[in-house]
Design a protein around this nucleic acid. Structure first.
Lengths: 276, 276
DNA sequence: CGCAGAGTTTGAACACAATCGAACACCACT
DNA sequence: AGTGGTGTTCGATTGTGTTCAAACTCTGCG
């Protein structure tokens, strides 16, 4: 069995049983307890489970299928770094529109809790992540898209357009200087477009693999974006083209604890932030 | 069993019985009394129980205020049996309003998947459970209530009132012949009341502990209900009173997969413990 | 009513068991 | 050579059971 595959199944088990022992998991998956501990530590670091003595529990009280798919664990580290950096850009923001996708979910997990913050989102996952964390959340409403658990349709669009927000934080399937921000599903794109209508600042968070990619449905031209947060794997040429259009591109460095001294002396201050 | 898990269940027992002995808990959980004492000391330190000589009591009213964690595991077996029985009552139904609470969530889990089924609900948990299972789901939208993850507020009420449904399946905090169906939170009650406005049939699912109980906010008078599904722990007198009002009460005390046909009808589900 | 004595409960102290993370070695794959 | 995953060893930490003296409750007697 693949390691990622096992981790996913571990997460599934925890969510299923609410609480489970390290020993049980080790037996069931035929690996040493140390390996399970490492899996759990990782899942905890990414905010999926809560570690306890002898096992793990979930605080995703509502045995939410949210996050329990392979995509969420995919590139979790990079997405976390990006999300964390983006969270730093939103201190003091009072009202936010949050988009959909796993990167935005990571952002929701890492967002410092503030009682005075108000969030509107079409994502059930984002809504429940923030809803359990003392943030005022408004969910769009409407038809629930099956695989993504996002609100779509006319009433969802109408709902997100009703609110004025300081900042919008969205993900993207594609991100190109020529074609702007694009999404895979046109119904999702409709809703996100609605959410961007009455916002002052648009922050796009996307890992490097999205740079230069173009998906079918246009969300917004690149000029409309204020800031893009990505990681070091993003294509430098595309970054240059986007910056030429006057858009700020922030490259979130790897976590300070994982970062080895850089050889070219370009250590950025952002990389040496306080540890989690 | 995990230590944290045991502490949670200890808390549950205390909340359930209002007062309980250390010796009883030690016997039930198969640990020494010293361990129970340590658990109780900890729970007292955290403000959940009050320690007494030989046991512990709670000042919290019923199991209501107990944290969401404990609640999900609470009566899980009974709720599942009830939910399964209720699911049998909804075969062929094309459109449904589903309420909130853990019992309804169990119902959503056990509902056979049908593509031609349409569901409207204010519960994020229910919506995501069904959304991942190939059912057309509409979520109400609006402000998300923090601890329960339900949609509340004017726009949620407005949304649920827009749809006509064949059947509504709701839970209840209280269920009495005199006071009808009651909920703890008035904002939830508002939304549920809206959902019941345009439905043809109301099914209430609630475990026995809710019978005779009255919570603060009225959802509906008992006469409005078509069918109530509960388990054998429900108070017989209250059942009789409700039946007298012309309401059908189904006691789902028998799980076919666990119990053989009953000869005298007195076998209780609680006697069939699952192996540790 | 007070009070002594029996029986129970308690928590501190100790010993033991389970679990933990760090460190190291090994393997597979690049 | 380097990377990521895995298992093992080992000292530290945490949880658990037992023992025992002190504290408490209850009861019966004066």
């Amino acid at each position: 069995m693949l390691a990622v595959e096992r981790r996913l199944k571990v997460l599934e088990r925890v969510a299923e049983d609410q609480a489970i022992e390290v020993s049980t998991l080790a037996r069931d998956f035929q690996v040493s307890e140390m390996t399970i501990r490492r899996d759990l530590r990782r899942l905890e670091r990414d905010g999926f489970v809560r570690r306890t003595y002898g096992g793990a529990t979930t605080h995703l009280v509502r045995t939410f299928e949210v996050g329990a798919n392979a995509r969420t664990l995919h590139h979790a580290r990079e997405k976390r770094v990006i999300a964390k950096r983006a969270a730093e850009l939103t201190v003091g923001v009072r009202s936010m529109f949050l988009g959909i996708g796993t990167t935005v979910e990571h952002f929701a997990r890492l967002l410092p809790v503030r009682e005075d913050l108000m969030v509107i989102t079409p994502s059930l996952a984002v809504a429940s992540l923030l809803g359990t964390r003392n943030v005022r959340v408004i969910i769009a409403g409407g038809l629930v898209r099956q695989d993504e658990l996002t609100c779509i349709g006319a009433s969802a669009v109408e709902a997100v357009r009703r609110y004025n927000t300081d900042t919008a934080v969205i993900g993207a399937a594609g991100l190109s200087a020529r074609r702007g921000i694009t999404e895979l599903d046109d119904r999702d794109a409709d809703v996100i477009r609605g959410g961007l209508e009455r916002t002052e600042r648009i922050i796009v968070i996307a890992d490097g693999s999205k740079f230069g990619a173009v998906a079918m449905s246009t969300v917004a031209p690149i000029e409309q974006v204020s800031t893009i947060v990505t990681d070091s794997s993003a294509d430098a040429q595309e970054i240059a083209r986007i910056e030429q259009a006057g858009i700020e591109v922030v490259v979130a460095g790897t976590d300070a604890s994982l970062l080895r001294p850089m050889e070219n002396g370009r250590t950025r201050l952002a990389d040496v932030r306080r540890p989690a």
